[in-house]
Simulated scan of single mutants.
Amino acid sequence: MKIRGVLFDKDGTLIDFFGLWLEAAQKVVPEFIRRNGFSGCEDLENALYESIGICDGQVDPNGALAYKSFAEIAEDIGRVLEKYSLDFDKKRTEDQMKRMFEKAMQGEDAKIVPLAELGGLFEELKAREICIGLATADTQKSAENCMRKLGVLEYLDYLGADDGRKQPKPAPDMLLDFARQNKIQPAEVLVAGDTRNDMLFAKKAGAKSAGVLSGVSKEKDLREYADFIIPSVEEIPKLLDALEGEI
């Protein structure tokens, strides 16, 4: 079946994950401890980093920071706080995470670095009459701001994010919304992402998946789950050409 829509993950797929999220996390975790009066708890900072998938400055491709929503991250943090017998309110923690990460990623020193010449890529997809969407665990506000800063927001036919209503990936909600709004079938969608979670997201909706190696995952992490593996989203047009040739 012809691909009529490409649904992109954001971080690690369209923009550099490490320069944005890892650096933001290294600001947010100490701030979270300070703001909540947890500063006297030994080893809490390391435990919180590990809970979101950061160990010794390295990101776990299957850890929370790589793919989870803020609500899910709050749950992971809550389990750590409970072990330390510290007060935990899930909604308050989720709200704090959202606000602090948004602040860290929208500051003047935030590093929003594209992993391809996105304007050219999106222009080419539009020329092929392919719908373009974004499906991210980031908040709506942060995702829109990021795409606007990169000058590509206008190309998007759909922007799915953490809005408190749709279930996060790998639940198929955002993909089904993307397909429905653009009057295409889920099987006509190609998901491009850098995590196993993105590949499961595609599979649950009956879409195709392209794992990219520009983010947190290595080929071995994606091999079992992705229909295709490519170095970066720059290869999407070539992949589409190859798929066209199979029809």
Rank of each mutant, 00 (worst) to 15 (best):
N182T: 04
E123C: 11
K141A: 15
P231A: 13
K204I: 09
V189R: 03
N182C: 01
L134Y: 03
G160L: 06
K126D: 12
Q140N: 11
S232P: 05
K126Y: 11
N182S: 03
G120S: 14
I132Y: 11
C146W: 07
M147V: 06
F201C: 02
L190K: 01
L222C: 07
E124I: 10
L150I: 08
E124S: 15
K149Q: 12
R165M: 12
L175Y: 04
S214R: 03
G133A: 02
F178T: 01
A135E: 03
F122P: 02
L190T: 02
P186R: 08
L176F: 06
D173P: 00
L159F: 04
Q181I: 10
I112S: 05
P172F: 08
A187I: 10
G120M: 13
F101H: 04
E234P: 07
G119V: 08
L213F: 06
A202W: 04
P114E: 04
E154D: 13
F178I: 04
D194N: 06
R128P: 05
R148G: 11
Q106T: 15
V189K: 01
D177M: 08
R223E: 15
R196K: 15
E234Q: 13
L134C: 09
D198G: 00
G107M: 00
L118C: 05
F228H: 11
V233H: 05
M199L: 09
A202L: 05
A205C: 11
E117T: 08
G120W: 11
N145P: 05
F178Y: 04
K103G: 09
L190E: 05
F228K: 06
K204P: 07
G120Q: 14
V233M: 00
V233T: 00
G206A: 09
A137N: 15
D177L: 07
Y158H: 15
A171P: 12
A137Q: 13
D138S: 11
K169P: 05
L156V: 00
A192N: 06
N182Q: 00
Q167M: 14
A210W: 07
D198E: 02
P186Y: 10
A135C: 03
T195C: 01
R128A: 04
L115K: 06
V212T: 00
V191Q: 09
D138E: 13
Q185C: 14
G107V: 01
M174H: 15
V113G: 08
F201P: 00
R99N: 13
P186N: 08
G107A: 02
K126Q: 14
A187L: 12
P168H: 02
E144D: 10
D162S: 06
M174T: 08
K149R: 15
P186K: 07
Y225G: 06
S217Q: 08
A187K: 15
M174W: 10
E154R: 14
K220F: 12
D173H: 08
P172T: 06
P186W: 09
E108R: 10
R196E: 15
L213T: 04
K169E: 07
L222Q: 08
P168A: 01
E188R: 09
V191A: 09
L121Y: 07
A110C: 03
L153R: 11
D109N: 14
L200F: 12
V216L: 03
R99F: 12
A161W: 02
L125T: 05
L115P: 00
N145L: 11
G160P: 03
Q167L: 14
K183V: 11
D157L: 02
D109V: 09
K183I: 11
